[in-house]
């Protein structure tokens, strides 16, 4: 179940009031099979756009997105977690989590029991039958993460999955996700604003420039896991990445 994800010279522009706005300009990025690459960058630099291209929601104007060396369309290998949780209000939390079973025609009973276990691990035990509107923002995000996991695809594209969480829950889920990833070996493209989070979790951090988006720097994070956020190495990586980001913001 190891598949790489490759962006080769991906460009994308959107129509805007002042002609076309180039959002991605020949972006290239490689997410190794079974590897964890994080993408950090200023707001509006096209991270979500890139994630949507990977998920087959948008098509690139130019360039290629390859999954295990093949085209990404209809490949059913990418699980996408949108930046906004996008839970369906008429489904219970548990039913939301098993949405992919309905699309893929898998057994609902089995999906439900898998989902129940994940709910307990995510600290959502007892909330299975609640409607999304009665859950907190952080709880909703966790349900969306479970939904992404249950799609049973090799590649996870997570768009700021912990954005709406408090520091404590966030740290817990980071650990949990890291552990699961070491067990299952998904290929992960992880989008975040949080440089520290990127250093803690990834084996490669890519920094994208502000519009039009391109990869400015890639940093290999070669530290053993589990990593501690107060260790000197993590702090050093964090400081150098922040410097790179700041330099980009000024120029």
């Amino acid at each position: 179940m190891r598949t790489s994800l490759t962006f080769a010279g991906v460009s994308k522009s959107f129509p805007s009031p002042r002609g076309r706005m180039v959002v991605l300009d020949g972006l290239s990025l490689e997410v190794d099979a079974g590897g964890w690459t994080s993408l950090v960058g200023p707001s509006g630099c096209g991270k979500t756009t890139l994630a949507k291209i990977a998920a087959g929601i948008l098509t690139a104007d130019a360039g290629q997105v390859l999954v295990g060396g093949m085209g990404v369309e209809r490949s059913r290998t990418v699980a996408y977690m949108p930046q906004h949780d996008t839970l369906l209000p008429w489904r219970s939390a548990l039913e939301n989590a098993i949405l992919s079973a309905d699309v893929d025609g898998r057994s609902r009973a089995q999906a439900r029991s898998e989902a129940r276990q994940l709910f307990v691990r995510f600290g959502l035990g007892g909330f299975e039958e609640q409607r999304p509107s009665t859950l907190s923002g952080g709880m909703r995000q966790r349900v969306a993460l479970i939904r992404t996991f249950l799609t049973r695809r090799d590649i996870l594209v997570l768009d700021e999955p912990f954005g709406a969480l408090d520091a404590l829950t966030r740290a817990g889920l980071q650990q949990w996700l890291s552990k699961i990833w070491m067990e299952l070996g998904h290929t992960v493209l992880f989008i975040t604003h949080d440089v520290e989070e990127a250093v803690l979790l990834s084996d490669r951090v890519a920094v994208c420039s502000s519009l039009p988006g391109r990869i400015r720097t890639e940093v290999q994070v070669m530290l053993p896991r589990p990593r501690s956020r107060v260790s000197a190495e993590v702090t050093a990586y964090r400081a150098s990445l922040l410097e790179t980001l700041a330099a980009g913001a000024i120029s």
């Binding site: 087959g56 929601i57 949108p82």
Partner: peptide, 23 residues
């Protein structure tokens, strides 16, 4: 966003109707 989610699951037109639009 909701349509994008179903697109990312490669839901067919029919499934989108049944799982999203009708409800």
């Amino acid at each position: 966003d909701q349509r994008d989610l179903l697109r990312s699951l490669q839901a067919s037109r029919r499934q989108t109707l049944r799982l999203l639009e009708l409800p």
